[in-house]
Write a protein that binds this DNA or RNA. Structure first.
Lengths: 124, 124
DNA sequence: CGGTATCCTTGACGATACTG
DNA sequence: CAGTATCGTCAAGGATACCG
């Protein structure tokens, strides 16, 4: 067996869909980015991400915790402090994340060049 | 200005969400993978992707066409033949795609090692 | 401060039938 | 063959209020 064997078709689809299950959806990557950039407290993360609500943030944090990408620590100070941090394992998504950032950046630039202002998608 | 400047926080979120708008969702990447692997005809693509329906495939193909990742060509043979192919621009998503395939693969292996069979997600 | 509880809307997706 | 049309379901996400 060679090292750089290409994945077969069905596996590619399966693996991509796995990845999307764990870090897909509207908010999971933004949350990871926020925590990566130093936000640790619930309300810090909440206010750092435009338009996210506390309900969704709460649910998504739990999902990320269950998938071992984020860890939740409770400090018994008074008042109780709760901090979210990225796990070591979370750093394995860096490549996915940066490739998406890069692609989104160049795509936005490409659109700006090729389209009249009237065609720009609103609210983004 | 240095070349390898890191993107700021807000831009990262914006760019990632742009990327998700274009190639996010359950089926867009599987469709790209299918076409990449040589499937060109509507029904070919349809039957190559487990559980996708024709309605969804039709809609997603149109989305991908509008975003210039896939091109639809009509050949005036009889009977009329229609073929979908990846655009040159679509090859720019290769990095995103392969990083997601890689991550999904290692994640699945990680889960298999660390979890009892009963915890495996069903239907995947 | 760090969330839950309720209620609601929307859009993604699915099943099935049908058409040029 | 390459789709559309119609109808239905479900889950993601949003608005607002409230709680320990």
């Amino acid at each position: 067996m060679s090292k750089k064997e290409e994945l077969n078709f069905e596996d590619k689809i399966k693996f991509v869909q796995d990845t999307q299950y764990v870090i897909g959806g509207k908010w999971k990557l933004p949350i990871i980015i926020s925590v990566y950039h130093g936000n640790k407290r619930f309300n810090e993360i909440l206010s750092s991400i435009p338009r996210i609500t506390n309900r969704v943030l709460s649910k998504e944090l739990r999902h990320l915790e269950e998938n071992e990408l984020i860890s939740r620590k409770v400090y018994d100070d008074y008042p109780t402090r709760i901090e979210y941090t990225l796990t070591d394992y979370c750093h394995s998504v860096a490549e996915v994340l940066t490739s998406m950032e890069k692609w989104g950046k160049q795509h936005r630039e490409r659109i700006k060049k090729n389209m009249p202002a009237s065609m720009h998608r609103t609210g983004i």
